[in-house]
Amino acid sequence: MASLKKRGAGRQLHGGKVAYAVLILFTIGSLFPLVWTAIAASRNNTRLAETPPPFWFGGNLFKNLEIAWTDANMGTALINTLVVAGTITVGTVLFSTLAGFAFAKLRFRFRGLLLLLVIGTMMVPPQLSVVPLFMMVAEFGWTDQLQSVILPTLVSAFGVFFMRQYLIEALPTEVIEAARVDGASSLRLIWHVVFPAARPAMAVLGMLTFVMAWNDFFWPIIALTQGGEPTVQVALAGLGRGQIPDQSVIMAGALLGTLPLLIAFVLFGKQIVGGIMQGAVKG
């Protein structure tokens, strides 16, 4: 991380016209489906069955958004997803920082073994645990309640590994030793030394976790089957199944489900890009 500044200079070459042209094309390709979602959401089902497809906004946007909000349950879904993704993000960041610090800087028995366990399960696909999770959730009577999607994703092995890697470098061991010599308790140490040092990485991990939790699909559609308390993705899957067979309403739902993250990207784009690039260098 420390060397980021130095290498920031990178290459000094200026981009030519071709570079701009390609990048602009690619940007259009990236943005077009989203813009077109909004266009389609502002039309009606019949218009979307005509040729050529619409390229400008129609007058039905608010009507369709309203139908999606109520009939497709997107309103409840957005609030639920906020609760779910928010809780998961806080849990993951907090617990990952604590455990990551312990693995990075403290000595205790079985440290190597436990770390190996964490790293070993990092790449295990979620498919491998859905069947028992589903049985557990059914057994506890949690189906269709938000804790069924919060609790299983509240911690992440990747998060622990990520924080450990970061803290090994970012938190000099001498600083900890100095604090210990001063008689600082572990609580004080974490509060005054670890958290400040870990803050940038916590922000990156938090952002990655939030986006992931917001967009999580596989487990939620299994756990929240009845659709009474959907997350955004569950509600969208319902639209995909044909719950409201109206393309313009489906697009309005997709728009509603994407908008919050899009707004965040517009507001914090620079930080998010920086975070992903830093995360990449670490990971």
């Binding site: 609760v83 779910v84 928010g86 809780t87 806080v90 849990g91 907090l94 009577g141 949690w142 309640q145 938000l146 804790q147 919060i150 609790l151 308390e229």
Partner: peptide, 14 residues
Amino acid sequence: TTLAAGLLAGCAED
């Protein structure tokens, strides 16, 4: 607070 509220909300619903 968020974490606690989230978990509580879950349990309360439960």
